[in-house]
């Protein structure tokens, strides 16, 4: 096997994998505090991209455009929770989950109307140069994606392990009733987590835009692949979800490079299907993850 080809597939795979990993993490966190799989999760990546790119195009400084896109992700995540989930908290889970699918469609439609159907681009944060590793050539922007993802993951990890609110999120995931008994306000925590998930997905969306462009219909692919990562982690383990997201990015890139780009999605979903069949099916999974709370 040619090493430079291998590296040329592996590293870009890790770059998109970073985005999937952050989406997967958002899925896991939202599902654990609210009981709802938020299928609009991937749309926040798209929104981060299109909002960041158009703020920049309107003459905002880069840092302000990034901050604006991230803040918009947080705000929209919080609004989604308040407007579409909080009012139906008592409804069965599948209804709430269906609502998140509806929200995804609406966000996509609004993005199409507001930002147009053509992909938006952004220059690399530190120029459009490239660098070379082991014979492979990568855009310098990849370093921004890896750095931002690592920083976000570290922040999420610190939050979960070392803050009172983060500990409460984990407690809710383990035993909601007991967490309520400790005085945890699950409503407030859910709002917080939706805002955080929206912000981190949007930030991921801005930093990858110089590499992959931002398009109104890109969210669904991010969402599905992040969802696959979350499933690999059984909707419980943030760490496995992260690794799953990264792995899917790499798998997809290898599938495109070594097989054919036309088959990459088929291969990713084929692997998911095989995994689910081996573990007893998506329904057993969904129940185990969501009803055991």
């Amino acid at each position: 096997m040619d090493l430079s080809v291998f590296v040329q597939l592996l590293l870009p795979g890790l770059t998109t994998g970073c985005v999937y990993a952050l989406v997967a993490l958002g899925f896991v966190l939202c599902a654990n505090v609210s009981g709802v799989v938020n299928f609009a999760q991937g749309e926040y990546v798209m929104l981060g991209g299109v909002i960041g790119a158009s703020l920049l195009a309107q003459g905002m400084p880069l840092a302000a455009a990034i901050a604006g896109a991230t803040a918009a992700g947080a705000l929209l995540g919080a609004l989604q929770e308040r407007l579409t989930l909080a009012p139906v908290r008592a409804a069965p889970d599948f209804i709430q989950i269906t609502i998140t699918l509806g929200v995804a469609v609406v966000l996509r439609g609004v993005a199409l109307i507001a930002f147009g159907k053509d992909p938006l681009s952004m220059p690399g944060f530190s120029g459009d140069g490239v660098f070379e590793v082991a014979g492979a050539v990568l855009p310098v922007q990849s370093l921004w994606v890896w750095g931002a993802s690592a920083a976000l993951l570290a922040a999420v990890f610190l939050f979960l392990m070392h803050s009172d609110a983060g500990r409460a999120v984990r407690a809710c995931a383990i035993n909601r009733q007991a967490a309520r008994l400790m005085g945890v306000d699950a409503e407030r925590l859910t709002l917080l987590v939706f805002a955080l998930a929206g912000a981190s997905a949007a930030l991921a969306g801005v930093v990858v835009t110089p590499i992959v462009l931002a398009n109104w219909d890109a969210g669904i692919a991010y969402g599905l692949k992040g969802f696959v990562g979350a499933i690999l982690g059984n909707f419980r383990s943030p760490v496995v979800a992260l690794a799953g997201g990264l792995g899917i990015g790499v798998l997809e890139s290898f599938a495109a490079g070594y097989v054919s780009s036309g088959y990459k999605d088929a291969i990713v979903y084929g692997v998911l299907l095989a995994y689910l069949l081996a573990r007893g099916g998506v329904f057993v999974f969904g129940r185990a993850a969501l009803l055991s709370r």
Binding site: A171, I174, N175
Partner: peptide, 11 residues
Amino acid sequence: VPERRQLFGTM
């Protein structure tokens, strides 16, 4: 102190 303790087992 709830019935069956209801600890956060993995914490």
